[in-house]
Amino acid sequence: MSALLELSGVTAGYGAVQALYGVGLTVGEGEAVALMGRNGMGKTTTVRTIARMLPATGGRVAFAGTDLARLPSYRAARLGIGLVPEGRRTFGPLTVSENLAVAARPGPWDVARVTRLFPRLGERMGQTARTLSGGEQQMLAIARALMTNPRLLILDEATEGLAPSVRQEIWAAIRALKGEGLAILLIDKSVREIAGVADRAVILERGATAWAGVIGALSADVADRYLGV
């Protein structure tokens, strides 16, 4: 499997505060990889670095063979990195259909296809995003990322703070996307749900890769050591 996304020895930080001390991970075409670790271990910083919202201070981030160093984030997005950021970030004042239209880039994903994935959005097209429920906003955030026709979808805590029934809807959608062969990098707290989708896992500990392997090899011992509270 050729690596679509490849990080090696990535360091990054916020001003004088270093947050990443050497992250390495790969995501192959059609592969789903879970990025795991306790709070504050650098998961969100890693995805922000991949999406070029935060510059890497060292190491290498390559996507589809292109070194992302010094590319602005809109160029990274055009290469096919679709980020669904933490906290269901939609364009609040715009309607659902406007949110989707803004992001649209040519490809197989269009309004009809994202509303098949999330039928609830189809019923809310004329509503402004800020009036949607939390779950619907999250669906819109994922749908918006899909409208850019990404080659890699990055989901940062896509189900956090949602009601269990809504979580199930979103996990079903993620499984469907994986089934269609979309490469996915996901961060989530639910190890059980992740195990149902991800092929591999990468665990971060204090801003560096501490463990990487196929999801089946993630023993209770490892989980307890790196993920237990």
Partner: peptide
Amino acid sequence: QAARANRQRVMASG
């Protein structure tokens, strides 16, 4: 208008 709401999110859309 989206860029007014959030510049980074617009960039994340390419």
